[in-house]
Design a protein around this nucleic acid. Sequence first.
DNA 1: CGGGCGGCGGTACCGAGTACCGTTCTGACG
DNA 2: CGTCAGAACGGTACTCGGTACCGCCGCCCG
Lengths: 220, 220
Amino acid sequence: MVTGTAAPVKQRLVDAALDLFDERGYEQTTADDIADRAGVGRTTLFRHYRSKEDVIFPDHDRLIAAVRERLATSSADTAILAVTEAVRLVLLSYVEEADRARRRYAITSRVAALRDREIASVARYQRLFREFIAGWMGPAPADALRAELMAAAVVSAHNHVLRRWLRREAADPAAELEAAMARVVQLFAGDSGDGSMVIVLRDTRDPEQVVTAVRQALKR
Amino acid sequence: MVTGTAAPVKQRLVDAALDLFDERGYEQTTADDIADRAGVGRTTLFRHYRSKEDVIFPDHDRLIAAVRERLATSSADTAILAVTEAVRLVLLSYVEEADRARRRYAITSRVAALRDREIASVARYQRLFREFIAGWMGPAPADALRAELMAAAVVSAHNHVLRRWLRREAADPAAELEAAMARVVQLFAGDSGDGSMVIVLRDTRDPEQVVTAVRQALKR
DNA sequence: CGGGCGGCGGTACCGAGTACCGTTCTGACG
DNA sequence: CGTCAGAACGGTACTCGGTACCGCCGCCCG
């Protein structure tokens, strides 16, 4: 048979889909159109991808599995490290296929159905992180909320940096993610959920000195 | 014509849909089934609801409009109040139709497509809160991240309480929401992104006294 | 050479969602 | 009282995403 294109089928389908979505828009492109341009039958398209949307979306199943694995291989005291590294894993998977990621972003930004799809995927990551975080915390209701908030923060931080990079507003996404995650960790550092007190103050002196002074003042 | 049922069409459609989803499951129920049981034509169903999913979902469009309105009528110093009240607005709208909300939750929990739909709706609220929060903050990148994190936390806190109530784990959802929101506010209280210092301490004395003591100790 | 076997294409089908048209009922107005 | 406008409804036909099934071809292995 003469096909003219020798690239793997899945690849050709992705290219065809991205091209067509750019040209005519997402809704105006049928599954037949994509299959035709890729030089395959419609059946073959749905053999390789579960749906029309799946064609251009990243392989979240594989990514989530990778994240789960990274989280699994961590002891209690390296938990935070595991989370930050797992998040970086996701970010880098986007950065690695920069071109396609940006094209996808341009399309998903305009199509409501695809936006919703993306959001649903994000929720799966958030769920994963929530369960992991809840795992190394107590079973108290306050802890459950804390885990929920932390997971949301982690995912939001990632998405914030990711979107900045997609919009070419972030030169060094890995570094920005590092900073954002540090921000998140700091945010929750002083929140144990019990009767602790949080005092915010502005002072130019060395933190150590300040802490010593405060400790001295509260001694009784 | 003899219809036997005099209730408004929209109401009958919702009841029919919930019943059928319980009996046969969501995918096993066609739009025709719902329309038939409600005693109307299929066309009428899609005249009242944009999709089969929409039949059982709350009227997020109206709710979001209400939230937006509540947020709009707030000055800079009542911003936090506006957010908490807006969130409570959403929670109460569920509590008001407790029965239906719980039936919906039971179904949504089991059907992936509906879960995704719900998540997408939540994202719309989150976006609203993010834009509002970003509005009364600076334009710096750090502020953008902060707004993102706060919005995520607010929405997560709400959902946490809502789900607890839906599962009958929360006797007084309004009070729990109040507590959860206070938790969120406290979480971000000491995070301005600049050089502020956050001190966490455990002390049983009155916070006012502690603050005074600290202030005294740091005077120079 | 023969017989699995995996990848592919085609056809037929289901169900959600849309467009369009004809009907009925109601209420206002001359 | 007759009529006309408009809203709500039902039915038909169509598009398109997604599934099931079957038959074809090429390839590898014994």
